[in-house]
Amino acid sequence: MPDYDAQPGRVPHDDPSSAQREADEIDLNAGMRGVAGLVADARGVTELLADVAEFAARAIPNVDGASVTLLQPQHVVPRLQTCAATAEFVEEIDDAQYSELREGPCITCMQTGRAVVSGSLGSDDRWPHFGGRVARMGVHSALSLPLVVGEEVIGAINTYARTRDAFGEHAVLLGSQFAGTAAVSVYNAQLLASTRERTEHLQRALVNRAVIDQAIGIIRSRTGAGSEDAVDRLKRMSQAENVKLVVVAERLVDEAVRRARARHRP
């Protein structure tokens, strides 16, 4: 049984029948196969995460809505951001948790790296502001599962239910298994997207460098200036017009091409 943080003083009723357990296992296995087969490929990470949230909502018992939240470490202060949700009320809950109240099961889950369960959010002393807000929305149970790769927490799967005590040990067990598979798929999607972004950035840099070199050559041919002087002139044009160096360079090259074509017209 995975280690998890349960609501203090509350013991959920969690004794599904053997038939229900078998049905839950089928749903879990289908969800894990679906998540394991996801590839970022031509789709973006956001689209892939939407699929993960949908699979989670079906693979974990008693879920009324689910979301996938990722840690955004590129910010000065790393922050959480919901990247996909299966329902609007989930987006509202997560937004209040991260942006306004700064407390809740997902934040605790990300801090501890352990699954977090609440069966009565309105009376959960761990998050007095968050719990009351969500209970007034008619949502009473929460299960947050960390997405862990190696020893690093990269995000979380959050599930919510309108009934009380919706997530017992059975749901935590299945959810933890699903989150383990989902974490690998999410991490691979992020890695692929990052690699693609770096490749595109490098390609743009190479193209920009070629255009700038062409513009420098045009300035030298027109003015007889040396290489450094031509670069300085290009920079001064960029600063005077308050536009990027590559934009000025592209304009010079385009102008030179137009002039050349005009000269060769019959």
Rank of each mutant, 00 (worst) to 15 (best):
V11P: 00
V11F: 07
P12A: 02
D14H: 04
D24R: 15
E25F: 12
I26D: 09
D27G: 05
G31N: 10
M32S: 11
V35T: 15
V35R: 06
A36G: 10
G37K: 05
L38C: 13
D41T: 12
D41I: 09
V45N: 01
V45L: 14
T46Q: 13
L48S: 03
L48N: 02
D51I: 00
V52A: 10
E54D: 14
A57W: 03
I60Q: 04
I60M: 03
P61N: 08
P61Q: 08
P61C: 06
V63C: 10
V63M: 10
A66V: 10
L71V: 14
P73R: 01
Q74V: 14
V76L: 13
L80A: 13
C83N: 04
C83W: 13
E91W: 07
D94V: 00
A96L: 12
Q97K: 00
Y98C: 08
S99Q: 07
L101T: 00
R102Y: 08
R102L: 11
G104F: 02
C106K: 03
M110Y: 09
G113I: 03
R114Q: 14
S118Y: 07
G122Q: 05
S123D: 14
D125F: 06
P128H: 07
F130C: 03
A135Q: 06
V139M: 04
H140W: 13
L143R: 07
L145E: 04
L147V: 09
L147A: 06
V148A: 00
V149P: 03
A156K: 05
I157Q: 05
N158F: 03
A161I: 13
A171K: 07
V172C: 10
V172G: 09
S176Y: 00
Q177V: 11
F178W: 02
T181Y: 11
S185I: 02
R196A: 15
R198K: 11
E200C: 02
H201I: 09
L202W: 08
L202D: 12
Q203H: 12
Q203Y: 06
A205Q: 15
A205M: 14
I212H: 01
Q214Y: 03
I219D: 04
S221A: 14
R222T: 11
T223G: 08
G224H: 09
D232K: 12
S238R: 09
Q239W: 00
E241Q: 14
V243G: 02
K244P: 10
K244W: 02
A249Y: 04
E250F: 04
R251C: 03
R251T: 05
D254E: 15
A256C: 02
R258T: 11
A262E: 13
H264K: 12
R265W: 04
